[in-house]
Structure formats: C-alpha cells, structure tokens
C-alpha cells in the first residue's frame, strides 16, 4: 500500500528522553511514510505520550532528532515552525477541547486565527468539519461538558482537521469508547484516510482498532522502537511483543479483523 522508497513524513532518529534518572527512550528510531496509518503500541509508562509530545515539538528531547517532512523541528525559525504546526492536526487523549467555547467555536479557533473570514463562512466551515467526522449539525452549539465521550473524540478530530492538515497525530482516539463507537471511529478514520490522503500516527491500546486500521505498527520496548507491518510484528519473537499480540484479547481481535 505504501511505497517503501517514499520519503518519510515523520522521521525520529536516536531519540533519548529522560526524566531525572529515569530513561524513557534510549535511541528510539521511527519512520512514518506518506499515506500510512502508523500505530504506536507500548506498555504503560513506555513513553508513548512522551514520544507524541516530542514529535509535536512540545517537548525538547535530551538527544536525537525529530524531522517532519524532512525538516528538523527544533532548527526552525518561528515563522517556519508556525507553518509546520498548521500542517499537523492533533487530538489529545481527553479531547482537550477548550471548555469555555462551544464545538463550533473550538473548530473555528485556528481558522479565526490564521484566516480572517466573515462569520457566515466560518459557520459553513464548522458544518463541513462536523459533517466530516459524522457529528450532527446541532452539535455545533454544544459545549464540551455537554458532549458524550464519543462525541468529544469526534469534535476533537474535527478541530484537528480544520486547518486541513496532511499529517494527523492521534493519542488513544478510541480509548473510553464503547465498542460500537470505537468501531465507528475506526471506519471514520479509514474514510478520512482514503478521502483526504492523510498520514496518521496513532497511539492506541485498542487491538481491534489496531488490526482494523493500521498499515504498520511500531512497538516501544526497552526504550527503542520495533516497527514492522502487522503481519511482520505478529511473527516477532520478542517476548513482550509476543505476549502483547498473542494474549487472549489479541486472538479475539485478530479473529474479529480477519473473520
């Protein structure tokens, strides 16, 4: 599905992350190619969210480099950095919608900042993003506290999509959702991926979601990353990876995906 020779969209090389004496990443390498859905997997505390924050430039690593679209994110001028930030969409685990703004205002927030537009146009664009993520038009006026978990995740995705990024970072997009909503979110992601030609980096613990959507998977073990196609990773002899993908829950998920 993806061309191995293609230039990587995300390239992390030799990443070292430390908190005091605790080493989280120790020479982690990662490459995500264009138009992939790349799943990041790892045990609790293995540094998945730290990796995400580092890739977004929210955290400066103790060593190594992070390149997005072939450019080191720490060597950019503020202007270039702003351009780069605008070409990435992010959703956080808890949604991180601004609680004092309603859903439409949350979606319009980056648009208002970068593209001065009349209100009518902003309203239409908010409706576009709501429709893209499968939310009803009347969700626009609701405040984050009034949304269910699934709606919050979708609204966060709508905000992430509002600047039409080509690269999307998702932190546990299906966690805390019921299986039906989670499955619907998977389908939504696949739909957006195929329609908008997105590259997606997704942290997930949801094995069903992983088997359904991801084209490649990276597993963080012992501070490094082992990445492979799903079929390849299933054959990996590393004990943790074996346990992860061959536990009782993994079997059910695989059967669900293939059956």
């Amino acid at each position: 599905m993806s061309d191995p020779s293609a230039k990587p969209v995300v390239r992390v090389h030799g990443l070292v992350s430390r908190f005091g004496t605790q080493v989280v990443h120790n020479g982690l390498d990662l490459e995500v190619r264009s138009n992939e859905i790349f799943g990041v997997v790892g045990g609790s505390g293995s540094g998945k969210s730290v990796l995400l924050r580092t890739m977004l430039g929210l955290r400066r690593p103790q060593g190594g480099s992070v390149e997005l679209y072939g450019r080191d994110i720490h060597g950019l001028s503020p202007r270039e950095r702003l351009d780069l930030v605008q070409s990435c969409g992010v959703t956080f685990q808890s949604g991180a919608l601004i609680s004092s703004l309603n859903v439409a205002q949350n979606i319009q927030l980056p648009l208002r900042e970068y593209h001065p537009l009349p209100e009518t146009a902003l309203e239409k664009i908010a409706q576009l993003n709501l429709a893209l993520v499968g939310l009803p038009p009347d969700a626009a006026g609701k405040f984050p506290a009034q949304l269910s978990g699934g709606m919050t995740k979708r609204a966060a995705l709508a905000r992430a999509l509002s600047l039409e990024p080509k690269l999307l970072f998702l932190d546990e997009p299906t966690s805390g959702l019921d299986p039906i909503s989670a499955a619907a979110f998977d389908e939504l992601l696949l739909y957006l991926h195929s329609e908008l030609k997105l590259t997606v980096v997704m942290i997930t613990h949801d094995l069903d979601s992983l088997f359904r959507t991801c084209t490649r998977v990276g597993v963080i073990v012992e501070g490094r990353m082992i990445s492979d196609t799903l079929a390849g990773i299933l054959q990996n002899p590393h004990p943790w990876i074996h346990d992860y993908f061959h536990g009782p829950r993994a079997h059910a998920a695989q059967q669900g995906a293939h059956g």
Binding site: Q127, L128, A131, L132, P136, P137, D138, E195
Partner: peptide
C-alpha cells in the same frame, strides 16, 4: 478534484439526515 464528489455526497447526506432542523 476528488474532494468535489466527496463533499457533494457529504452535503447531500447531511441535508438528508438532518433535514430542516
């Protein structure tokens, strides 16, 4: 562009599903 067809469908679906709110 392919977006035209996709967005036309999206607009149609949205109208149909939430006609006259």
């Amino acid at each position: 562009p392919p977006t035209v067809a996709m967005l036309r469908k999206l607009m149609r679906d949205q109208r149909a599903a939430h006609a006259a709110p």
